[in-house]
Simulated assay, not measured.
Amino acid sequence: MPRSSKKRRPNTEPPQPEDSSSTSSSDNEEDLDESMNNNPQESIQIDLEARSPIDTDRDAILYFLEQSFGSSIKKSILDLNQLATQLVTQQSCGSVFYQPLDSTMDETDDDDDDSPVLGICSILRFDQQYNKQLQPWLLDKCSDNEQAKNILQSSKCGFFINERYINIPADISLPAIRTLRQEITYPIDYWIIHAKLRLHKSDSNTIYYINGEEEIFQQYSTVSVDYHPIQSNAGEWTHRRKIMFVSSDKLDQICLDIEQKLKQ
C-alpha cells in the first residue's frame, strides 16, 4: 500500500521507456494497467511516498503529460512544457510519488540511488486569469456538446492530472485524491477528468480504463465527451480519450466508491 505521507525531497531524472526514440504514446499505453481488477497479477506492491513537485521533476511530469495527451501534440495546440511548469510552480497543491530508498543504504554514497518519480496527482486551475490555453483546447474537443461548453464557459473548473508508471497499483489513487482535495484553496465547481481508454478491435463494446479508478468518476459525471487521439490505433487496440465533467459535490461519494472497489 502506498504511504500517505508527503515529503519534500529532490530526485534525479525519471527513467525513460525502453527504446524511447521509436516508441509512440499509443505504444506506451499498451503496457499500462487496464483497470483495478484486470490482470491484477501484473501490478507490483511497493511502498510509495508523496511530496510536492520540485524543479528537477519537470522532465518526469512532462513525460506523464505526454502519456495523457500524446507526445505528438503540437506546441501550438497545447504547450505541455508550459503545463509541466505550472504543475511544478504550484508547489502547495499536488503530489508526485516515488519509492523511498532502502533505509539500510547510505544515501550519500551514490547520487544515482535517488528514486525517480513514478506518478503524479495534481490539478490545473484554469480560467481567464490562469492557464489560458486549456479552456480553448477543451472547447475545441467539446465543440459538439452544448452542456460541456456551457460548463467550460460559466463554471470554475480544474483539470485533474492523474498519471503513473506501468504496474503502479491503483491503491495510490485514493490517498492522493483525498490529499489533493485538502490542498486546493480556491473554489472549483467541476473537476475535469481526462481518462485514457482502450477498446479491443474484436470487441468494441468492452472498454478498459487505463486508470481503473477513473471509471468511477465516469459514473458520477454530469456530461462526458469522447475523442480519438493522434495515433489512436496500436496493434489489436484502439485508443480513446474521455473528457468527463464531475461536480465537486460528488467527490466524497467517489472516494467512498473507490475505497470499496479497492477492497474487493
Rank of each mutant, 00 (worst) to 15 (best):
Y190T: 00
Q90R: 11
L174M: 06
S76T: 09
Y130D: 15
K75R: 12
T185N: 13
G158A: 03
S103G: 01
G158R: 01
P100V: 12
F160C: 04
Q153Y: 04
I151E: 14
E66N: 09
E146A: 07
Q153P: 00
F97V: 10
F159W: 13
V117G: 01
Q91L: 12
S143Q: 15
D111L: 11
P175V: 07
V96F: 08
N145I: 08
E163T: 02
Y130Q: 15
K75G: 02
Q147N: 09
E146P: 03
Y186V: 01
S173M: 14
K132N: 04
P169L: 08
F126V: 09
L87S: 08
Q147C: 09
F69Y: 14
V117K: 00
S76L: 10
S143K: 10
G94S: 11
L138I: 04
N131Q: 14
I123E: 10
E163V: 03
K75W: 06
R125Q: 09
D171C: 05
Y186K: 06
E66C: 08
V117L: 15
Q99F: 02
L101C: 09
V96A: 07
N162I: 11
F126H: 12
S122W: 06
Q99C: 13
I168S: 03
N131K: 02
S155M: 10
Q129I: 07
D127K: 09
S154R: 03
K75M: 10
S154P: 01
D110C: 10
S71E: 12
L138V: 06
Y130G: 01
R125Y: 06
V88I: 15
E107W: 06
E163L: 13
D111Y: 04
Q90K: 07
I188A: 08
D102E: 13
L180S: 04
W137F: 15
D127W: 05
Q99T: 06
D102A: 05
D109Q: 05
I168C: 12
Y98L: 13
Q182P: 00
N167D: 14
D109Y: 08
G119V: 07
G119T: 12
Y98C: 06
A84C: 07
C157S: 06
I123L: 12
Y98I: 11
N162M: 14
L139G: 02
C142W: 01
Q91G: 06
D112A: 09
S72V: 11
T89M: 13
T85F: 05
Q91P: 00
I73K: 01
Q82G: 01
L180V: 00
I77H: 01
S92R: 05
L180I: 08
Q147G: 01
I172Q: 10
D114F: 09
S115T: 04
E146L: 11
D112Q: 04
R181W: 09
S68M: 14
D110N: 12
S154A: 07
F97Q: 13
D112I: 08
S154C: 03
E183P: 00
I161W: 12
D106I: 06
K149Y: 03
S71M: 04
F69D: 15
Y130T: 13
I184V: 14
